[in-house]
């Protein structure tokens, strides 16, 4: 990875943006790109790569609308600096479907009417994909009665594990139902 020289005594002026060349892998496509070190993954996806599925809600890591998968794990794209992700595989909501066939969670969200305005949905979907993988791997949660045992993914578990995704329309009941349908 190339970056600006930062030898002592030769610092770039603090006012000048620091640009870095890197290769970003998103939905199995590779993008050579020059980014400002301040750029978050969310801004890179939306403003540079025209992948506008991930949404900017709070921009503070609190709402989950920007959730994407990084090496299969759900993360908040608004808190991830793009410059740190050059060798990671990123999956956004645009990469969940298999061609024209929706991902099972996408199909379940439609079937269960698991949204109203839809703004939080891409984040809900990516978060649910990551969450189901975590549960399959046996990860406990804060509501798992015995952290040494195997968790059972009931509605209470789904609600706790999805607490990083807010829905201002309040479609939670149907979101939990859609995820539960895929989990069981």
């Amino acid at each position: 990875m190339k970056s600006e020289p930062n030898t002592p005594g030769q610092e770039v002026p603090v006012s000048a943006p620091v640009m870095v060349d890197l290769r970003l892998s998103v939905n199995r496509d590779s993008y050579p790109i020059t980014v400002d070190t301040r750029e978050t993954l969310l801004d890179t996806l939306r403003e540079r790569l025209d992948l506008t599925g991930a949404k900017k809600g709070c921009d503070h890591g609190q709402c989950g609308a920007c959730t994407v998968l990084v090496d299969g794990r759900r993360m908040k794209a608004c808190l991830a600096l793009t410059v740190t992700l050059d060798d990671r595989e990123i999956t956004t909501v645009e990469g969940l479907a298999d061609g024209d066939t929706p991902h099972p969670l996408q199909a379940a969200f439609i079937e269960n009417d698991a949204f109203q305005c839809g703004y939080c949905t891409p984040g809900q979907l990516c978060s649910a994909v990551g969450m189901l993988a975590e549960a399959s791997a046996g990860w406990p949660s804060s509501v798992t009665a015995d952290v040494t045992g195997e968790p059972r993914l009931d509605d209470e578990e789904i609600r706790e594990r999805m607490s990083g995704n807010l829905c201002r329309c309040g479609a939670y009941v149907n979101i939990v139902a859609a995820i539960g349908q895929v989990a069981r």
Binding site: G64, K76, L79, S141, S142, G164
Partner: peptide
């Protein structure tokens, strides 16, 4: 597990 959210813990 009591802290933050799944995404942030990751």
């Amino acid at each position: 597990l009591a802290g933050a959210s799944g995404q942030i813990r990751n």
